[in-house]
């Protein structure tokens, strides 16, 4: 019975992740429209986009190899696997010990590796450009994200997501400068990792500035749908990862249905607020020149490092 409940929770969470991710992306888009004085297409628009793409036929370039066709599945698959280890609705995930926070970041890195390869597969200039830029941004983000993780794991005495979340949720509410710094760094890193303004602009195909869009320019039909969906899940997961590390209060500790329902409810609220914060940042900033990104990501690294330093100096 116990095992069955655990499996049920695990499946429930996977479904929540897969199903809610487009809604979250839609919510962010809606907020963005409001802040910019436009009418929005509604929270459901990403679902309609995905559904439309699934119906369409796939058109592939002549010289595309198996990597091009395999990548969408990998992007989606890795996102779903990560979705089953991050504590989102419950802290009783039996799969969670199979990947700690470093592994989670590395699984995302694997997906990115294949995405960059897929970008280079067709042999157009845009694909290569996107791949090169994506890997450049990634290589500068990685140290920052690691330092942020380092701070959190120092404070939680573990790299396991469950233990970090439990340690923070059960501890008293204290003002810890190190966690605040790490949190700021994490927000900056999330912006860079999920390709939002000022690092990348997900809503344009402007040749000279695009990064992520340049890599997936040749995709169509269900492949594109999987990549888009995977990207939404990834965005969703980065935000929930942040919530699990920095604001874990309210995630269900027990197995009973009432707790899990509250936990889902609280998570929706937290996600709504997190989306608003991200939109405010995005609207307030302009897209940066590519080589100014070193400063943006340098700031993220600085924040994360200050987090580690503050942990030792001030706590």
């Amino acid at each position: 019975m116990k095992a069955l409940t655990l499996i049920f929770i695990e499946i429930l969470q996977a479904i929540v992740v897969i199903a809610l991710a487009p809604a979250f992306a839609g919510w962010v888009d809606v907020l963005k429209c409001w802040t910019q004085g436009r009418t929005s297409a509604g929270v459901m628009q990403p679902y309609r986009n995905i559904a439309k793409l699934f119906v369409k036929d796939v058109v592939i370039a002549d010289n595309a190899s198996w990597i091009f066709r395999f990548t969408p599945y990998l992007v989606f698959g890795s996102a779903v696997v990560v979705g089953s280890v991050v504590p989102i609705i419950s802290m009783n995930l039996f799969l969670a010990p199979s990947a700690d926070i470093i592994v989670v970041i590395a699984i995302f890195a694997t997906a990115r590796f294949f995405m960059a390869l897929a970008g280079m597969d067709i042999g157009t200039a845009f694909g290569g450009m996107g791949a090169s830029r994506e890997m450049m941004v990634a290589s500068l983000t990685e140290p920052a994200i690691l330092m942020a993780i380092f701070t959190v794991s120092l404070a939680g005495r573990s790299t396991s997501l469950l233990h970090i979340a439990r340690a923070f949720a059960s501890g008293a509410l204290v003002l810890r400068p190190s966690i605040v710094f790490a949190g700021i760094a994490f927000v900056l890193v999330v912006i860079a990792e999920t390709g939002r303004i000022p690092v990348d602009n997900p809503s344009t195909h402007l040749e000279l500035t695009m990064i992520h869009e340049a890599m997936i320019l040749e995709y169509s039909g269900r492949h594109l749908a999987l990549i888009e969906w995977g990207a939404m899940i990834r965005f969703f997961l980065f935000v929930t990862l942040g919530i699990a590390c920095f604001l874990p209060w309210g995630i269900a500790v027990t197995d009973n249905a009432g707790d899990i329902a509250t936990s889902v409810f609280l998570m929706v609220i937290k996600l709504g607020i997190a989306g608003a914060v991200l939109v405010l940042i995005e609207t307030g900033l302009a897209k940066m020149r590519l080589f100014r990104l070193t400063e943006f990501l340098g700031a993220a690294f600085l924040m994360a490092t200050l987090g580690v330093i503050a942990f030792f100096i001030l706590e």
């Binding site: 890795s78 779903v80 199979s98 990947a99």
Partner: peptide, 19 residues
């Protein structure tokens, strides 16, 4: 196990299965 854990087989099987 409280500090850190990684399961190569489960990660591999998970990704392969979902794909």
């Amino acid at each position: 196990p409280e500090r850190a854990s990684y399961s190569g087989p489960l990660v591999l099987i998970g990704i392969v299965a979902v794909c």
